[in-house]
Design a protein around this nucleic acid. Structure first.
Lengths: 359, 359
DNA sequence: CAAGGACGAAAAATCGATTTATCGATTAGA
DNA sequence: TCTAATCGATAAATCGATTTTTCGTCCTTG
């Protein structure tokens, strides 16, 4: 009945415009490209025809002849988090501003998939790629880009590369500030949790934190729990750690999912922040300011990272040569209620929870 | 120094394959398309040449001649939330499975932008569009699609349409279940909060809730607070509502951001769930199970919505005609600690918070 | 007054595939 | 034996733009 393609009439092509304007297709193309060697009268006829027919350039056909198409590829480990979600939003807006189309794909935390996506983007002859690698800058995806002469920028889980520009949050500096904050409050036994796979950033965050903490208080004890691949092993390690009686006064999580894991483990044991333990997480989220208590977090400068990445990328697309740069964008550390001074409350199972601690 | 485009050598085209295999380009095309009228020996030579040269079809050139390109457009109101984030992930995977490329764009909650994006996708001659409208199915974007004979499916903030297939969560049924849950626990004064702009779904959720609640307890009092456009007015309305002494025993938020607003307002007043007030939110999020308390929520069936939307879309892309269908996918209501029975605790400012209530 | 520019626009080539029309060779049928 | 059908493959047209080449005019200048 209600067939969708009611008016299937072909969209007007540049030749339709040409014949309506009484000129050749080449002239139409030139007028639309802004070439000045066209008689004003003819240009006007072209504009009129474009207007009357509602003509719009077919970007696909338009891209056929150029080696680099006006397409930018974006590969993120996931879309489900606020960080990568807003990263895609920003990148899309920036690409659009320059007349490019953004094709985004999720590697779903898999390096194999990352490489497949990249191959497909290479098929599309994208002008450039913004890649947020699953692990770090030394993965197979970056190697693929390199060996195929692709243009790209690496972001987020990277430090620096010998072939591509990199842009990421200044993890080390932010972590140092977290250390200042925690040690300043008197914490002398701190647990740091993270995923080791993302070697580059995890190491930067960990070392930035450790160096600053030890500088402020050489006797501070820093425990580290990491897991190789997924967060579940991290959860069980954390559970074991607490079960064997370890009682740090603060936890610093190097990644968002770790913050969730820490919170849920606190909850499982009936601990409350900041009375029983303090918590700071790398990566902020909207919900963190509405929970009881609100969670202190390191805010990554998404807009700056996106904008800097696109600037660098387009510079390369336009042919800039020279050694790759490695940018570090400053973070902001948001102090919230989850951080307090140690010793304000016992490690009790108390509080207003209804059920007793589980383990 | 380290110039990126080290090996700029042109990618092999179908003609390169042809000459290496000693056949014509047409034969190569046919072999790769799986046409059987090719001598097996020649087919083998083609495969060998493809292998040796590492040839891959250029999707752009390949799409040139067809009216509908193998591209699917996806337009979401935002990418920042888990719901739309995973929706994009799912859609991308499904498109890829069928050999299509997904181009995703964020309308950033603006109908004007929605239409612009759609126009650009029309320029690309996308085969189909999955549109999650900012308001509902009657916006300018759907009208644009209609008048341009585009193929598409509307999802999420829609109920049904006379031109396009629609897929959304069964908001009414889920809300009815929430009503059963709350009224069943003894709540007789419930506040519902939402955004009125998304008329279709908000009405469905509200009416589904109200009908079921009144059916179970005709004397139940249901207050409703909505705001037209953004959440900030909602926040201040909510603040006023509580300030003038209204004391519902439960709040049902019709959208994720509303749940956050409710939580933060509870917090501002020093109320705790579920002792002081119960809370249920439409739309689940990962953090809701790790907060104190965990937040009860309606879980939308993202995978089912995505998969059904793509099925319907491709059916239309392949030429299916007939009246549009309106699918409603069932939700799951996750009971969590934020819901209790009324009267278990006074509306106090108590609990373990350090600072006094603000207002 | 004829040759050399300059100018504006049309014709043609190009991008890389797909599809249609065409063609030569073999085989079948009359 | 000659024509017709069949098979496999190639040449050519096509998609819709851009870019290069060519081609008239008109103008300038020796």
């Amino acid at each position: 009945m209600a067939k969708q393609g009611a008016q299937q009439r072909r969209r007007p092509s540049i030749h339709d415009v040409a014949s309506h304007a009484g000129v050749s297709a080449a002239t139409v193309s030139k007028v639309l490209a802004g070439v000045t060697t066209v008689k004003p009268e003819n240009a006007q006829r072209v504009f009129d025809a474009v207007e009357r027919l509602g003509y719009r350039v077919d970007p696909l056909a338009s891209d056929m002849r150029r080696a680099k198409r006006r397409i930018i590829g974006a590969i993120m480990p996931e879309f489900e988090s606020e960080f990568f979600g807003s990263m895609v939003t920003e990148l899309e807006g920036l690409a659009e501003q320059r007349g490019y189309t953004l094709v985004a794909a999720s590697s779903r935390e898999s390096e194999a998939r990352e490489k497949e996506i990249l191959a497909r983007m290479h098929d599309w002859r994208v002008a450039g790629v913004v890649l947020a690698p699953v692990r770090n800058e030394h993965g197979p995806a970056a190697a693929f880009m390199k060996s195929n002469g692709m243009t790209g920028v690496l972001i987020d889980r990277v430090l620096s590369d010998d072939a591509f520009d990199t842009v990421s949050a200044d993890s080390a500096a932010a972590s140092a500030e977290v250390a200042r904050m925690l040690v300043g409050k008197g914490h002398s036994h701190i647990l740091v949790i993270g995923l080791a796979e993302q070697a580059a950033t995890v190491r930067a965050r960990l070392e930035g934190f450790r160096a600053q903490a030890l500088a402020l208080n050489p006797s501070v004890r820093i425990d580290v729990i990491t897991s190789e691949v997924s967060v579940e092993p991290l959860r069980s390690s954390l559970r074991d750690y607490f079960a064997r009686g370890e009682r740090p006064t603060a936890v610093y999580s190097l990644l968002l999912k770790g913050t969730l894991v820490a919170l849920s483990e606190f909850r499982r044991r009936g601990w409350h922040c900041p009375n029983d333990i303090s918590l700071v997480g790398f990566d902020d989220a909207e919900w963190m300011q509405v929970t009881w208590p609100s969670i202190a977090a390191v805010v990554q400068p998404v807009r700056q990272i996106a904008s800097e990445a696109m600037n660098l990328l387009f510079r390369r697309v336009e042919g800039a040569v020279g050694p790759p740069t490695a940018r570090l964008e400053p973070c902001q550390v948001l102090m919230r209620e989850s951080v307090g001074s140690p010793g304000n409350g016992p490690h009790s199972g108390g509080g207003d929870r209804q059920q007793p601690p589980l383990s």
